[in-house]
């Protein structure tokens, strides 16, 4: 559908929020907790904050939870009974306050889970998730969305995008049918489009390179020592993968108590030394340099080649969260200059 533009007054926002809540949907929105801001289930707009560049964790756990039960089991004398995942338990969720970079992250996630056979658990979660984006009025030195195809006001991935105007009111852009459904909950709050330009209310994020340049250079310098050098600081903690909106590597494990239990899917990371280790002890990606190269290659070369989508949205979380102060943006800039 073509994007529809409206004005939503500052005072109307909490009414809209309450209407969504009243419709029975779960709302997850950014909430301040001590020093960090993260998505949490909330009951009213008062509980949320709009004072954040990005949340510490991305919004991906709404569709790809850190731990997800795949099916349950009950063991008995005669064997075992499997209890299938009950898709009806997946709630209709509205993710409120998603930044455009995070909204753009759902497409690569979907590509990973559905590029070949359909992952019905993921797909159902995604189908029941509505993304209400909020454009960025500020950015920091880790942000690089404009270098990877995004921008601080991008509508890509959002169902509805709000941009705060100079007087505190909002420009509302309805992008999808799901966004339209949100509007339908309180159509009277959506007034005639404002005349103020959207762009003047957006953060400036300088473009440093293009994804295509990274792809070409990373492939060309696959055998270079640059990976080893860049990974020297890496302590293999996996934080970058856990905060990343598009990282989807997972492990499958069983956990149970006595006769009952479940098979679960849990977040994993290509940065962990055991990730690829064979039973024999042989490890195809034995060194951290190789694992770092895999991370960059996966996002900038393998994903575009296999799933026609890049795996980085430039949110900068990995750089902000890294305990060893590795900075993806700096490393990518170095790769481009090779």
């Amino acid at each position: 559908m073509t994007i529809e533009k409206y004005l939503v007054k500052k005072a109307s926002l909490s009414t809209l929020f309450d209407k969504i809540k009243a419709s029975g949907k779960t709302i997850k929105a950014p909430v301040k907790k001590r020093h960090t801001t993260d998505f949490a289930a909330v009951g009213s707009l008062d509980e949320t904050t709009d004072d954040y560049i990005t949340t510490a964790q991305s919004a991906k756990s709404a569709v790809f939870p850190r731990v997800e039960k795949l099916f349950g089991y009950v063991k008995s004398k005669n064997g075992v009974e499997l209890v299938d995942y009950d898709l009806s338990t997946i709630p209709e969720t509205v993710l409120w306050g998603v930044r455009p970079c995070d909204a753009a992250g759902f497409d690569p996630l979907n590509a990973i889970f559905n590029w070949d056979i359909n992952d019905v658990i993921f797909s159902t979660r995604l189908a029941r998730t509505t993304i209400v984006g909020f454009a960025c009025a500020k950015a920091d030195s880790s942000c690089f969305c404009t270098s990877v195809g995004g921008n601080p006001g991008s509508t890509a991935g959002s169902d509805l995008l709000f941009t705060k105007l100079s007087n505190g009111d909002y420009l509302a852009e309805i992008i999808t049918e799901k966004g339209k459904a949100i509007q339908a909950l309180a159509p009277e709050l959506f007034e005639a489009a404002p005349s103020e330009e959207k762009e003047q209310n957006l953060a400036t994020v300088e473009q440093k390179f293009t994804r295509e340049e990274i792809k070409a250079k990373a492939e060309q310098y696959f055998e270079s020592d640059v990976w080893k050098e860049q990974a020297q600081r890496c302590i293999s903690c996996g934080t970058c993968a856990f905060v990343c909106p598009t990282c989807a590597c997972f492990d499958i494990q069983d956990e149970g108590h006595g006769k009952h239990g479940q098979r679960i899917r849990i977040w994993d990371s290509c940065g962990f030394s055991l990730f690829t280790q064979h039973t024999s002890g042989h490890n195809p990606r034995e060194t951290q340099g190789r694992r770092w190269r895999q991370r960059v290659m996966h996002k900038f070369s393998y994903m575009p080649d296999r799933q026609s989508v890049y795996g980085c949205v430039g949110c900068g979380r990995c750089s902000r969260a890294c305990p060893a102060d590795m900075n993806l943006l700096e490393h990518l800039q170095q790769i481009v200059k090779l």
Binding site: L70, D84, S123, R265
Partner: peptide
Amino acid sequence: MEEKNIYK
């Protein structure tokens, strides 16, 4: 959409 749980 195929509804089968591919992990089961």
